[in-house]
Design a protein around this nucleic acid. Structure first.
Length: 408
RNA sequence: CGGAGAGUAGUAUAGUGGUAGUACACAUGCUUUGGGAGCAUGAAGUCCGAGUUCGAUUCUCGGCUCUCCGACCA
């Protein structure tokens, strides 16, 4: 893509109405724009990152046997009354004048899904069922904050598994921990599996926590065996690790995922049952697996940056390479890169100072920078630098395609 | 929802009870081109409402919005 096609430009100054690193950098670099507190537009660059994150998540969920669906964001009052959560779910965004006050914007989708599955599960032969969606959620947060880290509107993957018995569900739950670790590894997020309370659902759950000073959660992390416990579950600071007896560090973290057994909780409310081999009706046992995709994007921005700007991991960067044209000659290289399927952002702006192009490249944070100038053209070369490198390297033009495939 | 702070041009900021200034961005022209380049010209602004006042962007009150702390956060 040519930079001249992007309507969203970079800004030299940080926005005065944002303090968190992720919001400042993502807004300055033209990835997102705030409409109101906790409500953001994803601009072209930002949408590319979000889509990459969601596609990585999608791929891993599919591998885990998940089947993707898309449920409505608009939820009728009736289904939330079935679970009693029309009153009890504090963050439920209820409509007032619209839709006769009979709807809410969905903060989570158990009610919709259980209503749905009553029509599809009737026998043990129908189980297990593993479904997920990636969707926009709405929560009436009293205080949205920190850019993409806590929004009123945000993107989330929610996966639900339904089983004939607890053993099968527990087995799946354990497998899902590994799936989550694989996702976060691809996102290059250091997400620590952390024991946590289950809120209103159950005693047990596991959160995936990324260490970060600006995070909202507090986790006790064992120095020896890396076992982590959320402060909410641990209560006061444990003097000893529960597993190995070692000392624990108190760290601040961002929660990017949470998995927990729902067991028969909502099955009762919706009478989601099946006939077992003996013809007896039994309630379905479920697990729930959430992952905030827009929050993960915020966490990556929050953690991976330096004084010059963002530093995207290759897996989620909006483009693989950032081609800077200081003197004529890059257009041909751009076309060849595109023809070979390389995702490249081409800074083709005429009349911009070199320093401005370098500063923008640093700010946007694409992993590989390619510079074309008179000097490099004279040597039939381009200059290449990784975002985190200081030194540049001269590569012959015919060799850059293989260089890129090797280095990305 | 409690506490604190802040709202001046697209962005970031200065300033004043009496014609609102600067930088960047933007438009036009020329010159520039390896770390946000230069000259000239131009367009563009005081969150909303009430009060005090001859006169309010400035003072007072109310509202709205944003940020931060806290409460809340399946």
């Amino acid at each position: 893509m040519r930079l001249s096609e992007l309507f969203a430009k970079t800004k030299r100054a940080s926005p005065k109405d944002e303090e968190s690193k992720n919001a400042q950098l993502l807004e300055r670099a033209g990835f997102i724009q705030k409409l109101s507190a906790g409500v953001y537009t994803f601009l072209p660059l930002g949408l590319r990152v979000l889509n990459k994150i969601e596609n990585i998540v999608r791929e891993e969920m599919n591998k885990a046997g998940g089947v993707e669906i898309l449920m409505p964001a608009l939820h009728p009052k009736e289904i939330w009354e079935a679970t009693g959560r029309w009153q009890s779910f504090g963050a439920l965004f209820k409509t007032e004048s619209a839709f006769g006050g009979q709807y809410a914007l969905g903060p989570t989708h158990e009610e919709v899904l259980y209503s749905l599955l009553r029509n599809h599960i009737s026998s043990y032969r129908d189980l297990p069922v593993c479904v997920y969606q990636i969707q926009t959620k709405f929560r009436d947060e009293k205080r949205a904050k920190a850019g993409l880290l806590r929004g009123k509107e945000f993107r989330m993957k929610d996966f639900y598994s339904f089983h004939a018995d607890d053993q099968d569900r527990d087995k799946y739950y354990e497998a899902m921990k590994k799936v989550y670790l694989a996702v976060f590894q691809k996102l290059e997020l250091n997400a620590i599996p952390t024991a946590a309370g289950g809120g209103t659902f159950s005693e047990l759950s596991m959160e995936f926590q990324v260490p970060c000073e600006s995070g909202e959660d507090v986790v006790y992390l064992c120095k020896k065996c890396n076992e982590a416990v959320n402060k909410e579950l641990a209560g006061s600071a444990p003097s000893k690790c529960r597993s190995c007896g070692g000392g624990a560090d108190e760290i601040k973290t961002i929660e990017v995922g949470n998995i927990f057994p729902l067991k028969e909780k909502f099955a009762k409310d919706f009478n989601l049952s099946f006939k077992d081999k003996n013809g007896n009706a039994r309630l379905v046992s479920a697990g729930c697996y959430g992952l905030g995709t827009s929050r993960a994007m915020g966490a990556i921005a929050e953690v991976m940056n330096d004084e010059k700007g963002l530093r995207w991991p290759g897996s989620v960067a909006p483009f693989k390479a950032h081609l800077i044209e200081l003197d004529a000659g890059a257009s041909k290289i751009y076309k060849e890169l595109v023809a070979k399927g390389t995702e490249v952002l081409y800074d083709d702006r005429a009349g911009s100072a070199a320093g401005e192009k370098f500063a923008d490249a640093d700010l946007i944070g694409i992993p590989l920078r390619i510079v074309v100038s008179k000097k490099t053209i004279a040597k039939n070369s381009v200059e290449v630098k990784r975002r985190y490198d200081v030194q540049t390297e001269l590569i012959k033009i015919p060799d850059i395609y293989s260089y890129i495939s090797k280095n990305l």
